[in-house]
C-alpha cells in the first residue's frame, strides 16, 4: 500500500520539480531553436512513457498486493499485447528520431554564405583568427609555432599575411549573420561550447573540425571548454561578444594582421 503510494509520489514529485523548479534551459541566443524543439518533443514523448509505466506499476502494486488467499494468474505470454506495446514504442522512437535526424542534417551543412572564423584551443586559453581582407585563411602547421606565432600560421603563405590574430580570448561576431567556426587545437582535445548558442564541437589536435550557427541577439556570452583537458580545464574560458554591425566593424578595424604582428615583434 505504502509502497504503491510512494512510487506514485516519486512520479508526481518529478513532474512538479520539472514544472516548478527555477532551473530551466539557458535562454537561447542563436538559430538553433530547432534543437530546443526536438528537446521539448523528446521530453513530451518520454515523460508520457515514464508516467504511464510507473503509474501503472504503482496501480499494480496497490491492486495486487499480497492478501490472504490471493493467487496470481498464470499467463506466460500474450502475443497481441506484446506486439501492441512494441508497435507503440517503435512509432514513438521513429517520431523522436526523424526530426532529430533532419535537424542534424541541417547542423552539419553550413550555409554557403557563412562567414568563417577559426577558434584555436591550447592549454588553457582560446585564440581566434579571422581570414582578413582576402577572406581566405593562410595554411597552418604546428611546426611554425613559436613565441611570435602562437597559432602556427605559415609565414610563407601570402593568404595568411592579412589574417587577423586575436589572442586576448575575446571573439566578436556580428548579429544575424551565419558563422562557420573552424576548430583547431595545438595540444590536446578541447571543446567549444557556448550554452546560449547550443551548438558545440570538439577541437582535435591534428585535424580541423567545424560547426555553424547564427547569433540572433547582441550580448556577451562565455565560451567554455567542455572536453576535459587537464588541470586548468575549468579556467579555460573565452568571451563571445555579439555586436551590431557598426560595433563589429569598429572592433574589426582595431585588430592586427598576422604580417603586422610579425613586423612589430621583429623589432
Amino acid at each position: 500500500m505504502a509502497v504503491a503510494l510512494v512510487m506514485a509520489l516519486v512520479v508526481v514529485a518529478s513532474l512538479l520539480f520539472h514544472f516548478l523548479s527555477p532551473w530551466r534551459p539557458t535562454q537561447i541566443e542563436s538559430n538553433w531553436g530547432f534543437i530546443d524543439d526536438t528537446l521539448t518533443l523528446t521530453f513530451i514523448v518520454t515523460s508520457i512513457g515514464f508516467v504511464a509505466v510507473i503509474l501503472f506499476m504503482s496501480y499494480c502494486l496497490y491492486r495486487f498486493r499480497h492478501q490472504p488467499g490471493r493467487r496470481s494468474t498464470y499467463e506466460p505470454e500474450n502475443r497481441r499485447l506484446e506486439l501492441l506495446l512494441g508497435g507503440i514504442t517503435t512509432v514513438a522512437v521513429i517520431a523522436l528520431l526523424a526530426p532529430g535526424l533532419l535537424v542534424w542534417g541541417r547542423f552539419i551543412t553550413p550555409p554557403g554564405d557563412a562567414m568563417e572564423v577559426e577558434a584555436v584551443g591550447a592549454q588553457w586559453s582560446w585564440s581566434f583568427r579571422l581570414p582578413g581582407a582576402d577572406n581566405r585563411f593562410g595554411s597552418t602547421d604546428v611546426r611554425f609555432i613559436d613565441a611570435n606565432n602562437a597559432l602556427g600560421v605559415n609565414p610563407a603563405d601570402p593568404r595568411g599575411r592579412d589574417d587577423l590574430i586575436i589572442s586576448n580570448g575575446e571573439l566578436h561576431l556580428p548579429a544575424g549573420k551565419p558563422v562557420k567556426v573552424l576548430l583547431r587545437s595545438i595540444d590536446v582535445l578541447h571543446d567549444f561550447y557556448v550554452p546560449q548558442i547550443r551548438a558545440k564541437m570538439d577541437l582535435v589536435p591534428g585535424m580541423e573540425t567545424y560547426f555553424w550557427f547564427t547569433p540572433t541577439r547582441t550580448g556577451q556570452f562565455e565560451i567554455l571548454c567542455v572536453a576535459y583537458c587537464g588541470v586548468g580545464h575549468p579556467q579555460m574560458r573565452g568571451t563571445l561578444i555579439i555586436d551590431s554591425g557598426s560595433d563589429y566593424q569598429n572592433w574589426l578595424a582595431a585588430q592586427q594582421t598576422f604580417a603586422h604582428l610579425r613586423k612589430a615583434e621583429a623589432f
Binding site: T42, A199, K200
Partner: peptide, 11 residues
C-alpha cells in the same frame, strides 16, 4: 533517448 538522438545530444 535524449542523448542517443544525435541533435538533442549536441547541447
Amino acid at each position: 533517448l535524449y542523448l542517443g538522438n544525435v541533435i538533442v545530444d549536441v547541447p
